[in-house]
Design a binder for these strands. Structure first.
Lengths: 329, 329
DNA sequence: CTGTTAGCGCTTTCAG
DNA sequence: CTGAAAGCGCTAACAG
């Protein structure tokens, strides 16, 4: 790997001058410029980003912290982020927490060390320590999916999306609607969606049996188990079931089919996420499209803006959702 | 951001000494070490990776070049790679070509500039220029999914997997088996799978009508179109259809259902990829599991080995595949 | 056991 | 228009 000095020597100029043509800064006479260009061309020289970063404090790298790398949500999000970022010459440094909250903290630190120009954090959870860590981070940072006051956020409208789903059931004449959620420590998916469900039910004067509300852990298997519990323990069997993710819904469908229920005749069902499988289960699953790719793009735009203008006031963007009504209701 | 010098001053020692405790190299007396530790603790100091990289020429970053970021294959692959890499303290710098071959070249360059310790390239295609670029890259590089002589490869056994699928059809009594492929410039998916199909047919003395072989472009839509062409243009309608990817197969299924064909009674069908939707289409799709996550792991291991031992001879790993026989045949 | 010195490759004043 | 010099933050001989 050649260095700027060698290029300078070969072109009989100083490093400074080479640097100038490299960065299009300051004046360089036409022939000197051409001479240098030629040498650069011939040697295939490219300046070291590290040396550059060391001086300029800029890296053109954005750290992206994900809870789980191989989910549809994550990959759509990253696709959206990359779409905007690559256009602006930034690259993504991945950080996968694998749902380990400790790692969120670690990675924020690590990304600081690597001097990334910005961080996009997809949080599943907000706790005191995380907020502290975020607050003492001087790098522009934006959080997707959970609300953190001090920084910019891109949020899904979990509360209203949940209400919309329940409202749909009610329109279709359902009154006994049960719910498969996740732990409420996940504010967005766990708490807000549940609140939406409860509020919508309450507003319509519908009662909710305790056993109608079950919890899973984001996978198909736990959706199956939750559904089983609802069916086995409820004195009054519901006619509709709202699962907070598509995977949970698919698990529920699996259980229902196994027990001979007809969907949607015996039991209507809906999820959230618009995952690809939601189209292919039988019957196709009613769900909510959160447009993760759009979220990724929005986050990336916000971040770049914040990097380039260097301004601080946090912005909050709440994204639209689309209710996808399909044959499962 | 504090620097090593400030820490040194605060602890009344030289930078060298601080560096020593940071890297656990050389001797440092117990109390000096503790004094330094304390200062580091209090200030929350972390050494700059850039300055470090500039000296050591190591970055603990691996560049991963992907053809498309938001596919199941990619995300599984990345999950596998990350699994191994993170364990060894490496991070992933993402490079998404979006199927633009030009970008593969660009990114190899860019990753060099960023001095990544190694590169994992998921290639869809091998052309002269790419091989050249790869050869003049001094950074350890491994290619997944396509064979490139000069470097280590992790390969799927496309040829035998294809034969296995066709062989399955033949066992089930099919003789008129048609094929939906992709362009053969993609050696692995396009060429080898087709060759496997042809060879297996030939070996069993089965003939193939020209119209039985159609091409798509990796999406569901084009699978639909290809299937349509086969049905509409063949004088002798086949009884089985082998699609080189699950998505193509799903497209084909959509067409067949639309036209009232019963699967597998009127038409058997199989794909490759073991994508999640393959389980949920109706009927569940027979497919081949390539275990992308294992491929990612294998690639990461190979790469780390090559980085740490600094040895050159390229290794070739061909992964196993598993035929997943489901109701579509 | 600890410090001095040099230098990684680049950009950026400041003088010509 | 061009160059000299300083320095970004760190590590690695080499001397003590």
């Amino acid at each position: 790997m050649a260095t700027i000095k060698e290029i300078a020597d070969m072109a009989n100029v100083s490093r400074t001058t080479v640097s100038r043509v490299l960065n299009d800064s300051g004046y360089v006479s036409k022939d000197v410029r051409q001479r240098i260009m030629k040498v650069i061309e011939e040697t295939g020289y490219v300046p070291s980003e590290h040396a550059k970063s060391l001086r300029t404090k800029k890296t053109k790298v954005i750290g992206v912290i994900l809870p789980k790398i191989s989910t549809e949500t994550s990959s759509r999000l990253v696709a959206g982020i990359d779409d905007i970022l690559s256009e602006k010459g930034y690259q993504i440094l991945l950080a996968n927490t694998n749902l380990d909250q400790e790692k969120e903290l670690e990675f924020i630190k690590l990304l600081k060390v690597r001097q990334v120009d910005g961080i996009i954090l997809t949080a599943t959870n907000v706790n005191e320590r995380l907020v502290q860590q975020i607050n003492k981070t001087d790098i522009p940072l934006i959080v997707i999916g959970q609300e953190v006051d001090s920084v910019s956020n891109v949020l899904y409208d979990d509360y209203h999306a949940a209400r919309a789903v329940v409202s749909l059931f009610i329109q279709k004449g359902h009154e006994a609607i049960s719910f498969i959620g996740v732990d409420e420590s996940d504010v967005a998916v766990g708490h807000l969606r549940k609140k939406g469900y409860i509020d919508e039910m309450t507003q319509h004067g519908l009662t909710v049996e305790d056993t109608w509300i079950q919890k899973g852990i984001f996978d198909i298997e736990s959706g199956y188990e939750a559904m089983k519990k609802i069916i086995e323990t409820s004195t009054h069997t519901p006619t509709a079931i709202f699962a907070v993710t598509d995977r949970l819904a698919v698990g529920a469908i699996n259980y229902l089919k196994e027990k001979g229920y007809q969907i949607p005749e015996d039991m209507a069902i809906a999820g959230i996420g618009a995952s690809e499988i939601s189209q292919y289960v039988n019957p196709p699953l009613t769900t909510v499209d959160y447009q993760n790719e759009a979220a990724g793009k929005a986050a990336a735009k916000l971040l770049i803006e914040s990097i380039e203008t260097n301004k601080k006031e946090p912005k909050k963007i709440t994204l639209d959702y689309r209710l996808l009504v399909r044959d499962s209701v």
